[in-house]
Simulated scan of single mutants.
Amino acid sequence: MRLNKFNFIKNSHHEFYELKENDLIKAEDRLGFRFPKELREFYLEIGYGFIRGNKSAINRFLDPATITDITLREDIYEFDPDLDDIYEDEDRLVFYEVNEGVYLTLDLNDTDKSSVFFFDKKIADSIEGFIKKVDQNDRYFEDMED
């Protein structure tokens, strides 16, 4: 892990909360697998929280416990119809909430870097690339051509 890989996102424009490694491990134990390497790095270096931008959007890096609830379809996500299409592809992991019921996913088959998807459209080759783009324009992916 490269220390301070995500340091550029630590600024007054965003709001992140520290995450203890133990909380990450608890979520992984519930899931039965480890989070992708790059997501783990982000969590341990930055945490989870909000990218500030469009005031009408949530723009939230989900915490590990919420990702686990979504993946396992537990708690408030048990009957969430917005998740039905996402989990037709079991190789995707929700990690970011754009707006209520609109999520970004990671490709679980990637090893070192995690490709980021907006529905079926690949919008970044890595979490680092995604963060750099979203830090400049939180809605950049909505206007990308197929």
Rank of each mutant, 00 (worst) to 15 (best):
residue 114 S to L: 01
residue 18 E to R: 13
residue 127 I to T: 12
residue 79 F to G: 04
residue 36 P to H: 02
residue 43 Y to V: 01
residue 109 N to I: 11
residue 137 N to A: 10
residue 64 P to I: 04
residue 132 K to D: 07
residue 111 T to W: 08
residue 145 E to C: 04
residue 21 E to D: 12
residue 131 I to A: 11
residue 124 A to G: 12
residue 85 D to C: 05
residue 4 N to S: 13
residue 38 E to Q: 06
residue 139 R to C: 09
residue 105 T to E: 08
residue 70 I to L: 10
residue 9 I to P: 13
residue 10 K to T: 13
residue 90 E to C: 04
residue 73 R to G: 11
residue 15 E to H: 13
residue 122 K to F: 06
residue 13 H to C: 12
residue 131 I to F: 00
residue 20 K to F: 05
residue 13 H to G: 10
residue 72 L to A: 09
residue 32 G to A: 07
residue 140 Y to T: 07
residue 129 G to K: 13
residue 22 N to A: 13
residue 15 E to V: 11
residue 137 N to W: 01
residue 19 L to V: 05
residue 21 E to A: 10
residue 52 R to N: 14
residue 122 K to S: 09
residue 23 D to L: 12
residue 11 N to F: 07
residue 105 T to C: 08
residue 98 V to I: 15
residue 138 D to F: 02
residue 73 R to L: 11
residue 56 S to M: 12
residue 128 E to F: 00
residue 37 K to S: 07
residue 122 K to A: 07
residue 105 T to R: 02
residue 59 N to L: 15
residue 122 K to D: 08
residue 138 D to R: 06
residue 75 D to L: 08
residue 82 D to C: 14
residue 3 L to K: 15
residue 75 D to N: 15
residue 40 R to Y: 00
residue 16 F to V: 05
residue 91 D to S: 13
residue 46 I to F: 00
residue 35 F to K: 05
residue 96 Y to T: 03
residue 84 D to C: 04
residue 37 K to C: 03
residue 94 V to D: 03
residue 112 D to S: 10
residue 74 E to H: 09
residue 101 G to K: 06
residue 14 H to G: 11
residue 120 D to G: 03
residue 101 G to N: 08
residue 119 F to N: 14
residue 77 Y to G: 06
residue 108 L to P: 00
residue 54 N to A: 04
residue 70 I to M: 13
residue 94 V to L: 07
residue 135 D to G: 09
residue 59 N to T: 07
residue 48 Y to F: 11
residue 79 F to V: 08
residue 93 L to S: 03
residue 20 K to V: 14
residue 111 T to C: 06
residue 89 D to L: 07
residue 111 T to H: 11
residue 62 L to V: 12
residue 119 F to A: 12
residue 6 F to G: 02
residue 65 A to L: 12
residue 13 H to Q: 15
residue 26 K to D: 14
residue 80 D to C: 10
residue 137 N to C: 09
residue 126 S to W: 01
residue 145 E to I: 13
